[in-house]
């Protein structure tokens, strides 16, 4: 029951057309943080429903990739780094990579996959791609835990730099979201995105020092691979876990900068397209 007295304190919503580049709407995103929590939680709950192996898939995906890469690239192509077992090396990179790759693929389809919601309910649309990427965090944690027995098996202790891992993970999240915002918004207009994404992710993997060690690149140019934001993330993981003596300084700085550009531009693009989602999807 609404009395006349309390009505004055009610929230006032002003609806008007937006023009040009609109604000990022971070305030309304914050107001809907509980929705973000529930969407993430839903994606986690639903992800492995009706699968026989369940959450084991979170580990099987990077682990099988590691096995394949170890045989074909590590042994046959001789891409192994000098003093690290190839399986450990590639798995350390595949763990954050899988988080990124799944995040990009799922978030790119997040808007189109929620057409019903877009057409019938108002809420900050950005919660959809953010939620799908966040829900990959559980997969990441499961895959990450497998590193423990691997380190034990190869008698290769990680370094104290492991403490930096959350920051590298945050960078991977930022990169996935930056790309996801661009792709999900474009997907509403052009369904081609759906077909481009698997291809893009595959190419991106080989452009990232996951399966080949970056010391194969001449010292002078190595930092430039940091233009690929995932290069910074993967280098960071390898540095923290494998104890390489080359901290990814400039390379990492480049990756952070590129991620920031992707994220901010993606967010503005997303917000700009947001008003057409309900009509176009």
């Amino acid at each position: 029951m609404v009395s006349k007295e309390t009505a004055a304190e009610l929230p006032v919503i002003v609806i008007k057309p937006s023009h040009g580049w609109v604000s990022l709407g971070l305030r309304s995103l914050w107001a809907y943080r509980e929705l973000l929590y529930f969407l993430t939680w839903r994606d986690i709950k639903v992800r492995y429903k009706q699968t026989a192996l369940g959450a084991a898939w979170a580990v099987i995906q990077p682990f099988m990739a590691m096995v394949v890469f170890s045989i074909f690239l590590g042994r046959m192509a001789g891409l192994a780094p000098k003093d690290v077992p190839y399986p450990l090396f590639s798995y350390a990179g595949l763990v954050p990579w899988t988080f990124f790759a799944n995040g990009v693929s799922l978030s790119a389809n997040s808007l189109v996959g929620s057409q019903n919601l877009l057409k019938k309910v108002y809420f900050p649309r950005m919660t959809l791609p953010i939620g799908t990427i966040l829900s990959g965090g559980v997969d990441f944690a499961l895959a990450f835990v497998v590193l423990v027995p691997m380190h034990l098996y190869y008698r290769y202790p990680p370094t104290i730099n492991v403490l930096w891992i959350p920051l590298f993970l945050a960078l991977a999240f930022g990169a996935a979201l930056g790309v996801g915002l661009w792709l999900s918004a474009m997907n509403v207009l052009f369904r081609d995105v759906r077909y481009v994404v698997p291809f893009l992710v595959q190419l991106w993997l080989f452009a990232t020092p996951v399966v080949w060690p970056s010391d194969r690149i001449p010292e002078a140019y190595r930092s430039l691979i940091g233009l690929n934001p995932m290069a910074g993330v993967v280098e960071g993981f390898q540095w923290a876990l494998l104890g390489w003596d080359r901290p990814p300084g400039l390379l990492l700085a480049l990756s952070v900068a590129v991620t920031a550009v992707l994220l901010v531009s993606g967010a503005f693009y997303f917000r700009r397209m947001e008003k057409t989602f309900a009509d176009m999807v």
Binding site: V12, K16, P17
Partner: peptide
């Protein structure tokens, strides 16, 4: 606020709900 107007404005005091959205967002699993 599902779609934006092209022109003009509307001001609403209070929370809006609509019965056109019954069951949207339900997940069968």
């Amino acid at each position: 606020r599902i779609t934006e107007p092209t022109e003009g404005r509307a001001e609403i005091h209070g929370r809006v709900a609509s019965l056109l959205e019954v069951g949207t967002g339900f997940h069968p699993e």
